[in-house]
Write a protein that binds this DNA or RNA. Structure first.
Lengths: 155, 155
DNA sequence: CAGAGTGTTCAAAGTTTTCTGAAGACTTGG
DNA sequence: CCAAGTCTTCAGAAAACTTTGAACACTCTG
C-alpha cells in the first residue's frame, strides 16, 4: 500500500472508467476522488496531482457534478471549493446509463412506424423494442433492490 | 413508410447506436441490417447503400460478428457472403456490456488492496465493489428472465 | 489448377474529439 | 465597494480515432 501502488491502481481505474465511455481527463479526476486520502479535494490539488490544466479540471468537475457522481462539500474557512464523491454515486451512474436504454427503445419504436407493419424490418425492430422496453422497466427495479440490500446486508 | 422515411429512421438509429459507443460506420451498418427489406445482406450492397468504402464495411462486419450481433447466412448459389442479424442479438449485446461491469468490480477490488484497509479510499472503493459485484451477479439473471418471458409472453 | 471474383489488411489522410492556457467573470473578505 | 484570489470559458493546438483505397490473400468455378 505504498503511494506508488495507489497511484498505479488509480491510473488503472481511470483506464477502466475511460473504457466505459468517460473521457480520459475526467476519468482520471474521478479516480482521484475515489483514491483520495482526504474527505474532499480542491480543483488546484487535482490539477497538480494529475498534471493537467485548470481548464480540464474545471470541465471534469462540471461533468461529474452534472451526472451526480460528485458534489460540493462544505468547507468552512476555505476560499476554495471542495468536492467529494457522492454517496450512492454508482447507482446514480447506472441510472444515467438507463437513458441510453430508453433512447434505444424509442429509436426502435420510431423505426417500426417508418418501416410499416409486416415487413421483415418491423419484426426485427419489434424484438429490439421489446428487449429495451423490458430493460427500461427492470433496471430501476434492480437499482432499488441494491439500495434495499445495502441497508440490510445481513440476510 | 416511404423509402425516405426508413432511411431517415435508420440514420437516427445509427446515431443512437453511436451514442452508445459504437463507431459511426459500424453503427450505420448495424442500422442497415435492422432496416433491410431482405433477410440477409452482402458487403457490396452495404457499401453502395451507405456510401462507404469496402474496407469500412469489412471492419464493421468483423466487429459486429465478434460481439455476436450478426452472423453469416447460408446463401446457396451466391458467391458473395451474406450476413444477417442474429436472433437474440440485443441480449447478447447486453451480456457483452456486462464485461465492463466486471472490469469495474475488479478495478475496485485491486484499488482496495492498494489503498490498504481503514483508509477513506477503501471505504469508497468498497461501496463501488459491492455495487458492481451486485450488478455482475444480477444482470445475467435479468437477461435470462427476458428470454423466459419472451417465450411465454402471455401470462 | 488457372483465373475471375470477393474479402481483408494496413499505411496514410482526414475528421472529430479533447486538452491547454490565457483572458475574463465571479465571489468574498476586508 | 475595492482588491485578491478562485473559477470558468473558449479559441487554437494536440492527440486520438475513423475512414479510405489500393495492394494482397483467399476461394470457388470451369
Amino acid at each position: 500500500m505504498t503511494l506508488a501502488d495507489t497511484t498505479e491502481a488509480a491510473e488503472r481505474m481511470a483506464l477502466t472508467l475511460a473504457q466505459g465511455g468517460m473521457q480520459k481527463a475526467t476519468a482520471r479526476v474521478m479516480a482521484a476522488f475515489l483514491f483520495a486520502d482526504t474527505d474532499s479535494v480542491t480543483a488546484p490539488e487535482l490539477a497538480e496531482q494529475l498534471g493537467i490544466s485548470s481548464g480540464s479540471v474545471s470541465g471534469a468537475i462540471k461533468m461529474l457534478s452534472t451526472v451526480g457522481l460528485i458534489e460540493r462539500a462544505p468547507a468552512p474557512g476555505s476560499r476554495r471549493e471542495h468536492y467529494r464523491l457522492r454517496y450512492g454515486a454508482w447507482a446514480t451512474l447506472m441510472s444515467a446509463q438507463n437513458g441510453i436504454v430508453q433512447a434505444m427503445f424509442e429509436a426502435a419504436d420510431e423505426g417500426i412506424a417508418a418501416a410499416g407493419p409486416d415487413s421483415p424490418a418491423a419484426r426485427r425492430l419489434e424484438e429490439m423494442r421489446d428487449f429495451y422496453g423490458f430493460m427500461f422497466r427492470e433496471l430501476p427495479t434492480l437499482v432499488e433492490r441494491w439500495h434495499a440490500e445495502r441497508k440490510q446486508p445481513s440476510r
